[in-house]
């Protein structure tokens, strides 16, 4: 199964400062009480936004942002895919951070939300830039592993296979996993607890 190929993500960017921002904060559990992902976008960071009226996701200057700038271990905690779904439905197409939790990154990949990493210094500089001038446009290129930010270009990291999956449109794994399904059956038949002890 082939999906949309993703190379460039261009647009304005929204900064959310802080390490270890967990998925309960990105989308509180009460919004998981639904049988679809519809409407999650409007509740992204809801409790943080109530607690802090100056939250970037409440700031009209960042409306329409396509890139999210974060610090370390973003998306830790609960495995809820609702977190990347909420960000994506709000309009985010790529997250640029110092690091991401593993489950968050896997969930993001599975729904075609790009996550790339870079150094603390670069993140800080990009955050400063868009805090000072929210209309600044950034252009992420997976192909070049870089972000153009005004008159400077910074490099970003992304695992080669993940980059390939986005570039080739194979980030939705279901098709790959179902390819030549007899091989899966073969594994099932050799596993002792299925074959029988």
């Amino acid at each position: 199964m082939s999906n949309r190929k993703i190379d460039r993500v261009e647009g304005t960017a929204i900064p959310v400062r802080g390490d270890n921002i967990d998925t309960d904060r990105i989308i509180p559990a009460r919004f998981l009480k639904a049988i679809t992902f519809d409407g999650l976008g409007e509740h992204v960071f809801e409790d943080d936004r109530i607690a802090f009226s100056g939250h970037p996701f409440s700031n009209p200057a960042y409306a329409g942002a396509r890139l999210l700038l974060v610090n370390e271990n973003f998306g830790s905690g609960s495995s809820r895919e609702h977190a990347p779904q909420a960000l994506k439905r709000w309009g985010i197409a790529a997250c640029v951070g110092e690091s991401f939790s593993e489950i968050f990154k896997g969930n993001a990949l599975a729904i075609g939300l790009v996550c790339v990493t870079t150094s603390n210094e670069v993140i800080d500089r990009l955050m400063d830039l868009v805090e000072t001038a929210p209309t600044s446009r950034l252009a992420l290129s997976l192909n070049h592993r870089s972000i153009d930010a005004g008159d400077s270009t910074v490099s970003v990291d992304v695992e080669a296979p993940v980059r390939d999956a986005f570039l080739s449109g194979t980030w939705d794994a279901t098709g790959l996993l179902l390819d030549d399904f007899d091989v899966v059956r073969g594994v099932a038949s050799r596993v002792p607890y299925i074959r029988g002890f």
Partner: peptide, 19 residues
């Protein structure tokens, strides 16, 4: 622990794509 799209993958293929 996995997310919902990966639950779909396990239901569909009894397998996961994983690092």
């Amino acid at each position: 622990g996995v997310g919902t799209s990966q639950v779909r993958d396990v239901l569909a293929s009894q397998s996961l794509a994983i690092d």
